[in-house]
């Protein structure tokens, strides 16, 4: 049984079809990345899985249980860190667990140590750099009791160097604390470096356009970025995205989105 099953989802905003017959699934402890042109309904997918929106048609199941319209079934890391400024780092990472009524202070402190935030346990978010804030946000998601973590373009606001640091850091932490991950990104490299599987989605109305199983062995390090095989894969995924973006079928709503060059 898949950990998360999204089956034949249809979602409309008024007369506009945003998701048309979207289906995919994630296995337990798998790292799956969704990649697509900007404006493809990526955040809508998250809002549906998170229970904030309900689909017109289709099934969303977490470990076999229907989670349509049920908030709090997943843990979430947003694009902006969204840390509460009046809470210390420790209180912030506990927030996700606190909302579900299960706090584990000692584990939180241990994970902050592992994340290299030992000196900032009792600091307030305003004292942290952008990268550190995202680490805190990720640990908050990891400490939440839900089994599936959804990450919504978490590193898109960071500069290139910090982003690479964060990707390596994320992988190392994830390898220690295996969880099922659904990751959304713009960056093909990021997707290839991090995930087990990549799902390419089309522009609106969104559906799954292609799927790739990423063959690289774990643990991975940054030398992978210059690997021939990696570059070949990057080309393949880039082409599949290009096809998605340039499809012309007379639909006025469908536009060609230039994909960010890497």
């Amino acid at each position: 049984m898949s950990h998360l099953l999204v089956d034949h989802i249809v979602k409309n905003f008024g007369p506009n079809e945003v998701l048309s017959d979207l289906s995919f699934s994630i296995e337990k402890e798998e790292f799956v990345t969704i990649i697509g042109p900007s404006g493809s309904g990526k955040s809508t997918i998250f809002n549906l899985i998170g229970g904030i929106m309900t689909p017109e048609k289709g099934v969303i199941q977490l470990e076999g249980n229907n989670i349509i319209g049920k908030r709090g079934s997943i843990s979430f890391m947003p694009q902006t860190p969204s840390l509460l400024p009046w809470r210390t780092v420790l209180q912030n990472v506990l927030l996700g667990a606190e909302l579900q009524g299960k706090k584990d202070r000692d584990k939180a402190i241990e994970m902050l140590h592992k994340a290299g935030l030992t000196d900032y346990v009792h600091a307030r978010p305003e004292e942290l750099s952008g990268g550190m804030k995202q680490r805190v946000a990720f640990i908050r998601a990891l400490l939440s009791p839900q089994s599936l973590i959804c990450l919504d373009e978490p590193f898109s606001a960071l500069d290139e160097l910090t982003r690479l640091e964060m990707q390596k850091w994320l992988l190392s932490i994830w390898e220690d604390y295996r969880r099922t991950v659904l990751f959304v990104t713009h960056s093909i490299e990021e997707a290839l470096f991090l995930s087990d599987r990549i799902i390419v989605i089309s522009a609106k109305p969104t559906r799954v356009a292609a799927e790739f199983k990423v063959p690289f062995k774990r643990p991975r390090d940054e030398s992978l970025f210059l690997d021939d095989k990696f570059l070949k894969w990057k080309r393949t995924v880039t082409y599949s995205l290009k096809n998605v973006g340039s499809e012309k079928d007379g639909d006025a709503n469908r536009r060609t989105y230039p994909f960010r060059s890497i």
């Binding site: 908030r71 709090g72 979430f76 947003p78 969204s82 509460l84 606190e98 909302l99």
Partner: peptide, 26 residues
């Protein structure tokens, strides 16, 4: 209260009173 904060709280499953006491009031 910024939308991003509210969105996170909703996704994390905060109830109406949690939303108020943990986010909106402070």
């Amino acid at each position: 209260v910024p939308y991003a904060h509210k969105h996170y709280m909703l996704m994390a499953g905060a109830g109406k009173s949690q939303m108020f006491w943990k986010l909106e009031w402070p």
